[in-house]
Deep mutational scan, measured.
Amino acid sequence: MQRVNMIMAESPGLITICLLGYLLSAECTVFLDHENANKILNRPKRYNSGKLEEFVQGNLERECMEEKCSFEEAREVFENTERTTEFWKQYVDGDQCESNPCLNGGSCKDDINSYECWCPFGFEGKNCELDVTCNIKNGRCEQFCKNSADNKVVCSCTEGYRLAENQKSCEPAVPFPCGRVSVSQTSKLTRAETVFPDVDYVNSTEAETILDNITQSTQSFNDFTRVVGGEDAKPGQFPWQVVLNGKVDAFCGGSIVNEKWIVTAAHCVETGVKITVVAGEHNIEETEHTEQKRNVIRIIPHHNYNAAINKYNHDIALLELDEPLVLNSYVTPICIADKEYTNIFLKFGSGYVSGWGRVFHKGRSALVLQYLRVPLVDRATCLRSTKFTIYNNMFCAGFHEGGRDSCQGDSGGPHVTEVEGTSFLTGIISWGEECAMKGKYGIYTKVSRYVNWIKEKTKLT
């Protein structure tokens, strides 16, 4: 034993070699072989497995989906700052455009905790909710729209109204504003409101030439003092309507412009014939205590009207009353817009006519005020429907199939267009061939041609 100890002390290297040989010859039971080890760690190889990531292109799944990435790591994937920024906006807080917040056709661009709407022409605001041009839906104005110097929408209202708090709607500024039905039992019968379409306001006024200088022999019209197929109006439903009495009662109609003036057809009036105007009328054979009678003290036909040349060209006249009318729910003026808007309103496509005229061709006159909704007829169809001249200051309205029309005794009465609950004068009943005849239409004086003249002559002093 002493000898062994001496050998170990003198030859430590020998001992180490012996131990190493023993270990190498022993069977290893701690580690699995290569094949079995792979069965336990069965993990798919990654895209760049075996390579240094710093030297390969980034992978979106590896960089940002398996674990949260930084902007720089995302930049490695896209290799483009702009594309990385677009991805980053949604990656950080989701897609803010998912709810489609942009209105009126706006395009949404996502941002971090926010979004941006790219608005089409005519709109602005956070969600493109603000109209900035009158060309689109009248700028959301209830009545009139004008573009300011910086191309912003400025709404306005006709006389007797003021802008509401929203700067879009119009509200009454006087007790009985024009064009409004205020009798409670008839307010439910107000005709369907007309909503502004998209309009090209630059070209809204037709490029028409008034044929002022045409000389033409007097034409022989049949029954051209021209509501057939209409309905009984309720008291106060058309408070701007008046009836004219002269040699015979209810020979023509008219509309209240203001307390002192009536507008009617020029062919209705004769110099030297006494005319009485009755406002607030409903049943011409009954006294309903809503009527107001006034005498006409002055007749002003349009300066281009000449019955000797043509009885229905420039067929418009103004009547001055001896005493002002007292405005109330049964006696209310009709609204008159400017030339541009009167023309736009007419193009809405349908209007209402009213009167006490004959209820059928050569038949009896109506006792109760009649009204009828009539569609506008395109000019080409209008011209083809008659052998008589249709001037540019006239328009056609009615039904091709016949059966409904204005008729004798309705002449001078109103053709009105309702705009968001307020009625505007767009025409004056003038003439036609018979009444409600198939293929024939009622012919009306186009008020847009005469609004400046009306307003100039009827100013209240």
Results as ranks from 00 to 15, higher is better:
6 M>Q: 09
7 I>W: 13
8 M>E: 11
9 A>M: 08
10 E>L: 11
11 S>N: 13
14 L>R: 05
17 I>P: 02
23 L>S: 03
25 S>E: 09
25 S>K: 10
26 A>T: 14
28 C>E: 05
30 V>R: 11
32 L>M: 13
35 E>G: 13
36 N>C: 05
42 N>W: 07
45 K>S: 02
45 K>M: 03
47 Y>I: 04
48 N>S: 03
53 E>M: 00
56 V>S: 08
57 Q>W: 00
60 L>D: 02
62 R>I: 01
66 E>M: 05
73 E>G: 01
75 R>Y: 09
76 E>Q: 01
78 F>D: 03
79 E>H: 08
81 T>M: 11
85 T>N: 08
87 F>K: 02
88 W>L: 04
89 K>S: 12
89 K>G: 11
91 Y>C: 04
96 Q>M: 13
97 C>E: 03
99 S>K: 11
102 C>L: 01
108 C>D: 02
109 K>P: 02
110 D>T: 12
117 C>A: 02
121 F>K: 13
121 F>A: 10
123 F>W: 14
123 F>G: 04
124 E>Q: 11
130 L>D: 14
133 T>Q: 13
133 T>G: 11
134 C>F: 03
137 K>W: 08
137 K>R: 14
141 C>A: 00
141 C>Y: 00
142 E>P: 04
146 K>F: 12
150 D>E: 11
150 D>H: 09
156 S>D: 11
161 Y>I: 01
162 R>C: 05
163 L>S: 03
164 A>F: 04
179 G>C: 02
180 R>W: 05
180 R>K: 13
182 S>E: 07
184 S>G: 08
189 L>S: 15
194 T>W: 12
196 F>D: 12
197 P>F: 10
212 D>M: 09
213 N>L: 06
215 T>Q: 07
217 S>P: 14
219 Q>E: 08
219 Q>Y: 06
219 Q>N: 08
220 S>H: 08
221 F>E: 12
223 D>R: 10
232 D>W: 14
233 A>L: 07
236 G>M: 07
237 Q>H: 08
245 N>K: 12
247 K>I: 10
248 V>L: 14
253 G>Y: 06
256 I>T: 02
258 N>Q: 03
262 I>G: 02
263 V>E: 00
263 V>H: 01
264 T>R: 00
265 A>Y: 01
267 H>Q: 06
270 E>K: 10
271 T>R: 13
272 G>D: 10
273 V>L: 14
275 I>V: 10
275 I>N: 03
282 H>A: 08
286 E>S: 11
286 E>T: 08
308 A>M: 10
308 A>W: 06
315 D>F: 00
318 L>D: 00
327 L>F: 15
332 T>L: 11
336 I>L: 11
342 T>V: 03
345 F>R: 01
348 F>T: 15
348 F>M: 15
348 F>I: 09
351 G>E: 01
356 W>S: 03
356 W>H: 08
356 W>A: 04
357 G>A: 15
357 G>V: 15
357 G>N: 08
358 R>P: 08
359 V>S: 13
368 V>Y: 06
369 L>S: 12
371 Y>M: 13
373 R>M: 08
374 V>F: 02
375 P>G: 15
375 P>A: 14
377 V>F: 03
378 D>P: 12
394 M>C: 04
394 M>P: 01
395 F>T: 02
396 C>F: 02
399 F>L: 11
400 H>G: 14
401 E>K: 13
402 G>Q: 15
403 G>E: 15
405 D>M: 14
408 Q>I: 15
411 S>F: 15
415 H>R: 00
420 E>R: 12
427 G>Y: 00
427 G>T: 02
428 I>F: 05
431 W>E: 08
432 G>N: 14
436 A>M: 15
439 G>V: 03
440 K>I: 04
440 K>N: 15
446 K>G: 09
450 Y>F: 04
451 V>R: 03
452 N>I: 04
460 L>W: 10
460 L>H: 09
460 L>D: 14
